[in-house]
Write a protein that binds this DNA or RNA. Structure first.
Length: 271
DNA sequence: CACGATACCTGTAAGC
DNA sequence: TGCTTACAGGTATCGT
């Protein structure tokens, strides 16, 4: 489910129910996701007031007035359910607010995670310290990509999924960005030309920004307990389109496996 | 160190 | 219909 745009949409949606709210009840319904929940999670959050929400890469941030931030990752299948009619087997963490809202972190595959981090130390938190620049904003530019990818022999597709190179790109948007930039996903990262990397930067920023915008435009769906989160509903150019015609040249889109994951691309448009 | 393979876990869809 | 297999939006870790 969630790549950066979906996490951003999720955080914006959660803010409407959590920002400024006191957490009156915190319930853990199992001991772990990918890792155990923090031992003091319930104690740390119960009675705390949410002072703001944020996002770093694919991590969502819920800041509290106790100086601690709940950091959540949605993994492959995670989402927050708003005002669920009833809780199911995959609703692992439940928050209730002073205004009477109830939110449940639902994650069937349990690849997600929840951590508690001192807000003042967030940037130094090892997980965050290792991340590359955000794909949107000024931090990502051609100079950074030239430096980060220079001399690397792994495929550009695989490198772009590495959160140390760029923080927040996932399989969908890497495939889409490489298509927009006209870059063969199989090409060694260090052999992608400067002009191609210069095309890649706006391709990445564009596809991410459009996806966030699309998510934001369907934010009202967020309030529906079983509603989808408003994923990039626009038709993808290549993702999950094996055998279908390229939107630019009509050649059939190909699917290959790289690093154990599917890559879709147009062999004619991407060199 | 760089890189590829594998593990984690459940649901869904396709194939036989 | 029922069983088996492949695959899914991510990340950490283990070999080589």
């Amino acid at each position: 489910m969630p790549e950066l745009p979906e996490v951003e949409t999720t955080v914006r949606g959660l803010a409407r129910y959590l920002d400024g709210e006191r957490l009156t009840r915190v319930e853990l319904r199992r001991a772990d996701l990918r890792r155990p929940f923090p031992a003091d999670l319930v104690q740390a959050l119960t009675g705390a007031t949410v002072t703001g929400l944020g996002r770093r890469a694919k991590y969502g941030l819920i800041h509290t007035d106790r100086g601690r931030t709940m950091v959540f990752h949605l993994g492959m299948s995670g989402r927050w359910r708003i005002e669920p009619d009833e809780l199911g087997a995959h609703d692992h963490l439940v928050l209730e607010t002073g205004s009477g809202h109830r939110l449940a972190l639902c994650d069937p595959r349990r690849f997600g995670s929840v951590d508690l981090v001192d807000q003042a130390l967030l940037d130094q938190w090892p997980t965050f310290a290792a991340l590359g620049p955000e794909p949107i904003g000024d931090a990502l530019d051609t100079v950074h990509l030239l430096a980060a990818l220079g001399g690397r022999s792994a495929a550009i597709k695989t490198m772009l999924l590495d959160q140390r190179i760029i923080a927040g790109l996932g399989n969908i948007y890497v495939c889409e960005a490489l298509f927009r930039a006209g870059i063969d996903p199989r090409k060694a990262a260090g052999k992608v030309s400067g002009p191609a990397l210069a095309r890649l930067v706006p391709a990445i920023k564009g596809v991410i920004a459009e996806a966030i915008e699309a998510g934001g435009s369907t934010l009202r769906d967020y309030a529906q307990p079983d509603g989808e989160l408003g994923y990039f509903s626009k038709r993808f150019d290549v993702y999950d389109r094996e055998g279908q015609p390229c939107t630019r040249c009509a050649a059939p889109i190909k699917r290959i496996t790289q690093g154990g994951r599917s890559t879709w691309f147009c062999a004619k448009c991407q060199k």
